[in-house]
Computed example of a mutant assay.
Amino acid sequence: MIPSFPVDVERIDPLLASEVRRHYDRGGRTISFCSGSFLLATLGLLNQRTAITHWRYAEQFKQRFPHITYRDDSLYWYDGRIGCSAGSAAAIDLGIAVIRDDFGYEYANAVARRLVLPAHRDGGQSQFVQKPLAPVNAALAKVLDRAVKHSGSGSTVEQIAAKANMTRRTLDRHFIRHFNMTPHQWLCERKLEVARQLLETTHLSVEQIAGRAGFDNAVTLRHNFNKYLSVSPTKYRQTFKSSQQPF
């Protein structure tokens, strides 16, 4: 774990470089916070990966490491081996992502609740979190709150638009502006959240879970799992099924 690193240092102490590389080569997980990504980049560990650092150092990072993909629109990035975060608060989000990757929803949620934080649960091995976006107008916010609360009821984009007194085109613009995704993608993510929780916490069949999550059938559920999470529902359950209650 690398909490920070001087952004203007280009020559790394040989002992430090050796230890970090040895840890990585042995299969260890390497996590950096804030400017710690400069150390990882200098050692070549971020080559062909995505990098994040504090916004104050973003331009300097991009100039020094033009061959590394840098995300301005992320708070952190984690791929299962290496993680980078934008700053101290984002480091907590990254920590929750690591817990979720190792132990699943329930443990990540339990930790997040203790820290009075939301648990960010999108993605599979990699997790992308948007920057805070502009507030959604009150009418749409109420509709979305209801849609989240009843994610398994099979709400449609047309129903959301009607309840928010918007045309479909206006609704699309609002979603792109506030969530950087279409209403259909947003609804699908909400349904997948329900399905993932049921896969982890129940013994229901995939067919039953598809119905409770609001999908038309198990085929549609499997298709969206593979599309958005790059894993099948069965494999996901094998990986994250809770064997005991979280603390």
Rank of each mutant, 00 (worst) to 15 (best):
F103S: 03
L229E: 06
K163H: 08
A218C: 08
V148I: 07
Y57G: 04
R237D: 08
L75C: 09
E200G: 12
S88K: 12
A58K: 13
Q159M: 13
G154V: 05
F38R: 00
N226S: 14
S151E: 02
T50Q: 06
E200S: 12
A108I: 03
G36F: 00
D25M: 06
E200T: 10
T167N: 13
K191D: 03
V231A: 07
T220H: 11
F225W: 06
N137M: 15
H184R: 09
I82K: 05
T220L: 08
E10P: 06
Q245C: 14
G152S: 07
L117S: 07
N217Q: 06
K227W: 07
M1P: 13
A112G: 08
A119Q: 08
S37K: 01
Y24F: 14
N180L: 06
I209L: 05
Q159T: 11
A17K: 10
T30V: 15
W186Y: 15
N109T: 08
A195W: 01
E106W: 00
R196P: 01
R212G: 10
F61N: 01
P246A: 14
I12V: 14
L192R: 00
N109G: 05
T42Y: 02
A108S: 14
T239N: 08
Q244S: 13
N137K: 13
F5L: 11
I82C: 08
S126K: 04
Y57C: 10
E106R: 02
A213M: 06
N224D: 11
P132C: 13
D122E: 15
V148S: 07
S88F: 13
A141F: 13
L199A: 04
D216K: 15
V231I: 15
I12K: 03
Q244W: 09
P6Y: 07
S4G: 15
D145H: 14
L46I: 09
V111T: 08
S85P: 04
F215E: 01
Y70T: 01
A162V: 06
N165P: 04
I2L: 15
D8P: 00
S88E: 10
I209A: 02
I96R: 00
D79V: 03
E193M: 12
Q208G: 12
G104A: 06
Y228E: 03
L204N: 10
A213Y: 00
D13M: 12
F225D: 00
R100S: 02
W77C: 00
T69V: 11
A97E: 00
V148P: 09
T30M: 07
D216T: 14
T30S: 06
H67L: 11
I176M: 15
D25N: 06
